[in-house]
Design a protein around this nucleic acid. Structure first.
Length: 570
RNA sequence: GGCCCCGUAGCUCAGCUGGAUAGAGCAACUGCCUUCUAAGCAGUAGGUCGUACGUUCGAAUCGUACCGGGGUCGCCA
């Protein structure tokens, strides 16, 4: 058991004992939670807890008084050398060194850590970039975020299906087809017309047309088959980029296949029955000129009932489905597959959509048990020399994900895209991530690992498992060694929280911190030869090597979850 | 205007979801390579946590209002 669990168990037992003495209502304590954390300072002991401050009211005591009562019990614990009470009511705990050595043994023995989550079947939808062009840096953020999240959720024991929803129907695909056809026409007849405003600009689609001509000029025009072909070509390119980013989806769901007439009719009926959709007139949007506004009757969702500003269209006046409508169908389809949890990763620009879709889905399935989370990823600004690189999708000239990957590599890209909480914008500066120094966190972490491996190699010892169990670790007595052990013990709870809060950046932060502590430990050897890892004394050397090995194991495991390379030497 | 996100050192950001004297990196200054990887380490300096109230033993963290920045608000995609 890790120290956090060990102490929480201990403290809870003490609390219960004190409560039973006093006949205090147990219910009261349920909504209170106390912390056990690594002390920030040496004088605060190894570990601190705020338990007395959290519960002082329940006991009608001052925090200090309660701390004293708890501490009287706590001090009886064999593993604890001493524990002290400080100012507002913290209890600072000092363990015997052996306790930490045992923690290291425990860490060593873990092959499959049991996170203690109830099994869940999760559908995680991410990327879902429209097949009308290449992906850009914004897509990369959602892609890496979603993919890493999936790995984290799998790590803690969930079943995760990685899904890509292909918007291969509707007006945008018609537009795509018209664009390609336009270029084909130009190429075929050697014309040089300007591209009409209502088509997709940019060299990418032009190149596709050229390729189509080169490989096969008998593609049928203006029909479904042709559209399918174009979507297929673009999806192939998107998948190619994703693969380079180490992203492989388990399933690709086609909007076209899902939004069948039959389903549309059934959903319409259901919505009307539930009294949350109707044929009617939409109010004039605030940012549309009054004289340009034409009132037309069509099928609307009663979003106002769910706190929206106005009711939103489900079916257009020309009888085509809106994205909203086909999205509802798509999510209904997901729920039929018996997922316990749906997670969608969208760009923030879809923010206005969240409430609508959630309320619709929950309203249609009142008796089903499931959770539906939508995480929004904020903007990514590409920077060079401290200046934003202007991106204009309108002109079709934008920096593609491909370009960025080629420049900085997938490791840097993956690390950066998740190292910040998803609701914060990222200024992605090329210069920094081309550097190979501390400013570049990826290299800093990889370098820590490479140093670990290097020293294990040069030591000449073969640390296989059987030998490790018989080792005497009592030579690990330096503060930095204990600090390393404590942080290693934290690894699993970091992963656990990353999964719980859907926040992968907790792992990159952890990795940076752990690397920092390790580099610092390493640096001790430069100041003082007796503090090197390899020293004259065989026992000390072996103990330290074990510690280093576990540091390297944890870094490797973390990087594996993040799908970032972990070079043995640099 | 409505809704949402952000505001922490000169710059880029952490802050374990209410705890102790708010932490890192960069930039600046000072030390450390006859040395297990100096792609590194150690140190100095740098703060009214946007502002103001409020909640309580205790607030960067929670609430309200305001200020500043961004996003979004069509049958767009």
């Amino acid at each position: 058991m890790f120290f956090q669990e060990f102490l929480k168990e201990k403290l809870t037992a003490i609390l219960e004992k004190l409560i039973s003495k006093k006949n205090i209502d147990l219910l009261k304590q349920n909504d209170l939670k106390f912390n056990v954390e690594i002390s920030q300072k040496k004088e605060f002991g190894d570990v601190s807890t705020n338990i007395a401050m959290v519960y002082s009211k329940v006991f009608d005591l001052s925090p200090i008084e309660l701390a004293e009562q708890i501490n009287n019990e706590l001090e009886k614990t064999n593993e604890i050398e001493k524990s002290e009470i400080l100012k507002p009511g913290f209890i600072n705990i000092f363990f015997f060194d052996k306790f930490w050595h045992d923690q290291l043994f425990f860490l060593m023995g873990i092959s499959n850590y049991e996170y203690g989550f109830k099994k869940k079947n999760i559908c995680l939808e991410y990327v879902s970039a429209n097949p009308t062009g290449l992906m850009h840096i914004g897509h990369a953020r959602g892609a890496v975020f979603g993919d890493t999240l999936a790995s984290i959720l799998e790590e803690v024991g969930y079943e995760v299906n990685r899904e890509y929803y292909i918007n291969d129907a509707g007006e945008q695909i018609n537009k795509l087809e018209r664009t390609i056809s336009f270029y084909l026409e130009q190429e075929n007849n050697n014309k040089k017309k300007e591209l009409p405003d209502d088509l997709y600009p940019g060299s990418y689609l032009k190149d596709i047309s050229k390729n189509i001509l080169k490989t096969n000029n008998e593609y049928p025009k203006n029909n479904e088959e042709f559209k399918d072909k174009i979507v297929e070509i673009i999806m192939k390119d998107i998948k190619k980029d994703l693969k380079k980013l180490k992203i492989n989806h388990d399933s690709y769901i086609s909007e076209k296949m899902i939004a069948t007439k039959d389903r549309v009719e059934r959903l319409k009926k259901r919505l009307i029955d539930l009294n949350i959709a109707y044929y009617g007139y939409q109010e004039k949007p605030k940012n549309v000129d009054a004289n340009k506004w034409e009132k037309k009757k069509h099928f609307l969702f009663s979003s106002k009932k769910f706190g929206d500003d106005s009711d939103r269209a489900l079916i257009k006046t020309n009888n085509e489905l809106t994205y909203f409508m086909s999205d509802i169908i798509y999510h209904q389809e997901k729920l039929e597959k018996k997922y316990d949890l749906l997670i969608n990763i969208w760009g923030v620009d879809h923010f206005g959509y969240v409430k609508r879709l959630k309320s619709a889905i929950y309203a249609i399935n009142p008796s089903k048990k499931f959770d539906f989370e939508i995480k929004l990823t904020s903007l990514v600004n590409l920077m060079k020399n401290n200046e934003k690189i202007k991106m204009s999708k309108r002109s079709g000239n934008y920096v593609t994900l491909r370009d960025v990957m080629n420049e900085v590599g997938t490791d840097v890209l993956r690390f950066m895209m998740i190292s910040r909480n998803c609701d914060k914008k990222i200024d992605f500066d090329f210069e920094i991530f081309l550097q190979k120094n501390k400013d570049n966190p990826v290299f800093y972490v990889q370098y820590a690992y490479a140093r670990c491996r290097s020293i294990l190699k040069t030591s000449g010892y073969d640390l296989d498992k059987k030998k490790l169990k018989d080792l005497d670790l009592s030579y690990l007595i330096l503060d930095d060694e204990k600090l390393l052990i404590k942080n290693l013990c934290n690894f699993y709870s970091v992963v656990k929280n990353a999964a719980l809060f859907l926040e992968p950046h907790r792992i990159t932060n952890y990795l940076y911190d752990l690397s920092k502590i390790f580099h610092s430990y390493w640096g001790l050897g430069n100041q003082n030869k007796t503090m090197r890892i390899i020293v004259d004394d065989k026992n000390i050397t072996l103990s330290r090597l074990v510690l280093v090995k576990i540091v390297s194991d944890i870094i490797k495991k973390s990087l594996k979850i993040l799908k970032i390379n972990c070079p043995e030497s640099m």
